[in-house]
Amino acid sequence: MSGLGGPTKPKDVTTLRGLLPRPNVTTLRGLAPVARKLAVWDKGYPVPGYDSALIRKDDFGYWMKYNEYGNRNSDYGWEIDHILPISMGGSDDLSNLRPLYHRKNASLGGGLSSFF
């Protein structure tokens, strides 16, 4: 586990670099699921020494693996989080979305605390 309670550095990864195009968009309405996922993934923080197409950290410092998207059984799973929840006036625009470690996302519960 990392110092923030998240998982440690992943050891086994396969490369995705060059397999999927990186979208240049500000809104995700109407995009294919893969393009939406990549656009949000790119908002995560690259980790020095690791391929940023495969490994990133979220806003809270938790490690995420690109290929573990949506996997709540993984120590590196992540989800797309609304910074300001839809129920509180947030939107699906890329500016309001971020990649977030799945356990942190579940702990926020969609409330205003997810904004900070």
Rank of each mutant, 00 (worst) to 15 (best):
S2L: 12
S2N: 15
S2C: 09
S2I: 05
G5S: 09
G5N: 06
G6F: 14
P7V: 01
P7A: 15
P7C: 14
K9S: 12
K9A: 15
K11I: 11
D12L: 06
V13D: 05
T14I: 08
T14F: 14
L16I: 00
L16E: 00
L16D: 01
L20G: 00
P21T: 12
R22L: 07
P23F: 08
N24I: 12
V25Q: 12
T26Q: 14
T27Y: 11
T27P: 02
L28S: 04
L28D: 00
R29D: 12
R29A: 15
G30D: 13
L31K: 11
V34W: 06
R36I: 14
W41N: 04
W41P: 01
D42N: 10
K43F: 03
G44M: 05
G44R: 01
G44Q: 03
Y45P: 00
P46T: 04
P46Y: 03
V47A: 03
P48H: 05
G49T: 05
Y50M: 10
D51H: 00
D51F: 00
D59N: 09
D59Q: 09
D59G: 04
F60H: 11
G61A: 06
Y62S: 08
K65W: 01
Y69P: 04
G70R: 06
N71G: 02
N73I: 01
N73R: 10
D75S: 12
G77F: 05
G77L: 06
G77M: 03
W78A: 02
E79H: 07
E79F: 05
I80G: 08
I80D: 12
D81K: 03
H82G: 05
H82R: 05
I83Q: 02
L84P: 00
P85C: 07
M88S: 12
G90D: 07
G90A: 10
S91T: 15
D93F: 04
D93P: 01
L94K: 09
S95N: 10
Y101T: 00
H102R: 04
N105R: 09
A106F: 07
A106E: 12
A106I: 11
S107E: 14
L108R: 12
L108K: 15
G109I: 02
G109R: 15
G109M: 05
G111K: 13
G111L: 07
L112A: 14
F116Q: 10
